[in-house]
Nucleic acid binder design. Structure first.
Length: 424
RNA sequence: GGAGAGGUGGCCGAGUGGCUUAAGGCGGCGGUCUUGAAAACCGCUGUAGGGUUACACCUACCGGGGGUUCAAAUCCCUCCCUCUCCGCCA
């Protein structure tokens, strides 16, 4: 959510910044509603002040046993005032709701360092690491490798759940589990605190991080209850500190969290229909940071490098791209995507997305901190990034480490977790 | 699922309709005293909105929402959460 005072003071600036995203917005109507809200608020507060004063007077008169008739007159006046107030309050409530609705649907303003562009083709590559492996045979897709090795079963997953689900078996299941443990062990050794949160959350939490109200159709919802399945650990972990005032000494806070993630993939029919790339349910280790505003861009760089480090240790080639204004997520001010090389597709594919939300989520979720010796509070900046998506890491390992005979070499760092050095 | 008890400021805790602008304590900050510190004493110490050049001042907030009343932390309705006991259960 953007700062309403900032919008009030700089509507043209905000409009211009959002146009870079390809987001057309007119503040004319909004500003007039907002003006209406303020004038209603002032009127109500004045009337309440009168009522408070007279009520006090009534109490005083009753105590001193003054003339009863005078009291009745005052009470009658206040009854009249109370009726006026309650109708004004109804009006205010309605106007406030319109203002809030409007604000909740406005995306974040891109940081000035974000490259301008229309869509993902305008994203800018920042750096590359590693060289794509050379094969003296035709490399296979991971779904073929998985089937040959008997470690991924899409057919039976379709039977028990549906499309976009997978059953991992044997060393496939173990590889998934090994990756989760490896990533958590690594990140926690770097100062991230491990968190295992609920994977069902309420509507307020989803609103706090920006999934709701705008993206309801992307989420799985439990019928007859207020629960949603999380699309990412970002939601429960960021909401850990919702409605809290942190002290300056506590910051920065770093969390690493493994959770399953659930996505409807409503708008992606026909995209990545085969394989593990786009599933309704997948595992992910997520990194979440709460930091002071002046540190957040430095923290974005280190967060991204923390995610990259996992790929480096797995010796998987990747590149980092800076998302352009048109490709930026709703809540994000700046995002780096890490894309891993997939020989099966001969393409770099997203395996991690690292974002700085600045105070956008903090304002929605009311996450603040107090500076030492200073009065008042400020919003923290929140960041998060995948560290990494587990399913896609499995894909990358199977495709990059495949051998001519169909076997797959286990990356060295995973061998202690796997107990074997080759999957055959 | 059943029965009961609760939810008050950073923390503890009093408060069942009107001098409560939420008592008192702890913690924190400042001061007096002291070579310095501790103790003691004194003062200050919530959030948000409106308003003002800046103050002043005003409004709201006692788990959330709604209601009764001239007036609500206090009464009513509803929802959420916590604890205890019982039942069920991994």
């Amino acid at each position: 959510m953007l700062d309403i005072k900032f919008i009030r003071a700089n509507p043209e600036k905000v409009k211009e910044a959002l146009e870079k995203r390809g987001y057309q917005i007119s503040f004319g109507e909004f500003l007039s509603i907002e003006e209406q809200r303020l004038s209603l608020l002032r009127e109500i507060e004045n009337k309440r002040a009168i009522r408070n004063k007279v009520s006090e007077e009534i109490a005083h008169l009753k105590k001193t046993k003054a003339q009863i008739s005078n009291i009745d007159e005052l009470i009658a006046e206040m009854r009249e005032l109370g009726q006026q107030l309650s109708s004004l309050e109804d009006k205010l409530r309605e106007v406030e709701e319109r203002v809030a609705d409007f604000l909740l649907f406005i995306p974040n303003i891109p940081h000035q360092s974000v490259p301008y562009g229309k869509d993902e083709t305008d994203n800018v590559e920042v750096r590359r690491w590693g060289d794509p492996p050379q094969f003296d045979f035709m490399p296979l897709n991971h779904w073929d490798i998985g089937e040959i090795l008997g470690i991924i079963d899409f057919e039976r997953a379709g039977k028990i759940a549906g499309s976009r689900f997978a059953v991992m078996k044997g060393l496939g299941a173990k590889l998934e589990r090994a990756l989760i443990n490896f990533m958590l062990d690594w990140h926690t050794s770097k100062g991230y605190k491990e968190v295992l949160p609920p994977i069902l959350v309420n509507r307020v939490s989803m609103t706090g991080t920006g999934q709701l109200p705008k993206f309801e159709e992307d989420l799985f919802r439990i019928t007859d209850s207020d629960f949603y399945l999380i699309p990412t650990a970002e939601v429960p972990v960021t909401n850990l500190h919702r409605e809290e005032i942190l002290s300056e000494d506590e910051l920065p806070i770093y969390y690493a969290s493994y959770t399953p993630c659930f996505r409807r993939e409503a708008g992606s029919h026909g995209k990545d229909v085969r394989g593990l790339i786009r599933q309704h349910q997948f595992n992910k280790v997520e990194l979440v940071k709460f930091v002071k505003p002046e540190d957040s861009y430095e923290e974005l760089e280190s967060l991204t490098r923390d995610a990259e480090e996992i790929l480096q240790m797995l010796k998987l080639p990747y590149r980092v791209v800076s998302l352009c204004t048109g490709d930026l997520g709703f809540s994000s001010a700046k995002t780096y995507d890490i894309e891993v090389w997939l020989p099966g597709q001969e393409k770099y594919r997203e395996i991690s997305s690292c974002s700085n939300f600045e105070d956008f989520q903090a304002r929605r979720a009311n996450i603040r901190f107090r500076r030492r010796g200073k009065k008042g509070t400020e919003y923290v900046h929140t960041l998060n990034g995948s560290g990494l998506a587990i399913g896609r890491t499995v894909v990358a390992i199977l495709e990059n480490y495949q051998q001519k005979d169909g076997s797959v070499i286990v990356p060295e760092v995973l061998r202690p977790y796997m107990g074997v050095d080759i999957i055959r």
